[in-house]
């Protein structure tokens, strides 16, 4: 109880409680993430069960009974009669899964390489950081598309749809590790000259132990900030790739795929098919991003 009281009064929680933007963002993120996770329980229809689909329900307007069947769909249906609300919930699962996993992949890769570059120095550092520099000169989407294209070329046709999600994750992750590596390398350069690291060297600690046990915990707070902001970017990147048709397959539609599908009906008057997935994507990316901004301001004493 006392612990909770202390945590509640800690500077971190205090600054959270006193930032309306942070509170609203977190609430929104939680609602979206939870509804994605529990999509099977919340969604009124299973949009991927062909048996439950009725083509007669196609192009139902939101909140209006369908002319043929009389069914009412909150957010309307698409061309195949799939409930837009349900597809959004299921689509968000894919988007969030790809986003989280891609960021985790980028984080592990970037933090490890950054730690090694910063601590070991010399040619190792030069090699890692030059690769990072070169990669930074290409837009992330381009890198992701390149990787996606290569992967598509080497995977067998029958596995393509299954593999698509994983290829997407690797493509986004590989285009995103650089900023983790850069920040961690910079922080490591500062930390490795501090006396507590010298003291550990003096004791005879091995470099691996010093990096993992001493330096890593002290470079993690900027990593947390970047991870949050990267999550927003990764979700958008996934949507972009899917929208361009190189991402999630139509059998496993993400938010981007839904927007891509809806785009075809925008000018024929079925605006709801594209509007609602877009709003969801916007809300998700924006709230995660605002949360990341707040984290950065709170954890970075220089900006305070």
């Amino acid at each position: 109880m006392e612990r909770i009281g202390r945590a509640w009064n800690s500077d971190f929680v205090w600054s959270f409680r006193h930032s309306p933007v942070a509170v609203v963002s977190l609430a929104l993120v939680l609602v979206l993430v939870l509804s994605a996770v529990f999509a099977p329980l919340i969604a009124p229809y299973d949009p991927f069960d062909p048996a439950s689909l009725n083509l007669m329900n196609g192009f139902s307007k939101p909140m209006e009974p369908n002319t043929f069947t009389g069914d009412v769909f909150w957010l309307g249906t698409d061309d195949q009669g799939r409930d837009v609300f349900s597809t959004i919930l299921y689509g968000m699962r894919i988007s969030l899964f790809v986003g989280f996993t891609a960021v985790l992949f980028a984080l592990i890769l970037g933090v490890s390489l950054g730690l090694i570059a910063g601590y070991v120095g010399g040619w190792t550092e030069t090699a890692i950081m030059r690769v990072a520099d070169v990669q930074l000169t290409f837009p992330a989407i381009l890198v992701a598309m390149l990787i996606f294209g290569i992967a598509k070329g080497i995977t067998p046709v029958h596995m393509r749809d299954e593999m698509a999600i994983w290829v997407l994750i690797i493509a986004i992750g590989l285009s995103d590790w650089v900023q983790f590596a850069r920040v961690v390398r910079g922080a490591t350069l500062v930390e490795k000259n501090k006396e507590y690291v010298q003291a550990a060297k003096l004791i005879g600690r091995k470099p691996g132990a010093i990096m993992l046990r001493h330096i890593l915990p002290n470079v993690l707070s900027p990593v947390l900030v970047i991870a949050t902001i990267s999550l927003a970017l990764a979700i958008i990147a996934e949507a972009t790739l899917s929208f361009l048709g190189v991402g999630a397959p139509p059998t496993q539609p993400s938010l981007g795929t839904l927007i891509c599908i809806g785009q075809g009906y925008l000018f024929s008057g079925e605006w709801w098919i594209i509007l609602y997935p877009s709003i969801t994507l916007l809300a998700l990316a924006l709230s995660v991003n605002l949360l990341g901004d707040w984290l950065r301001d709170t954890l970075n004493p220089k900006l305070r």
Partner: peptide, 30 residues
């Protein structure tokens, strides 16, 4: 048999470690 005490009071202790682990490290490392 050799140890060192440093000048910088803020940088010489790992801020993420409990005092117990900091003090015991020279022994724990062996």
């Amino acid at each position: 048999d050799i140890q060192m005490i440093f000048q910088d009071l803020f940088a010489s202790l790992n801020p993420r470690w409990r005092v117990r682990d900091i003090i015991a490290e020279p022994v724990a490392a062996r």
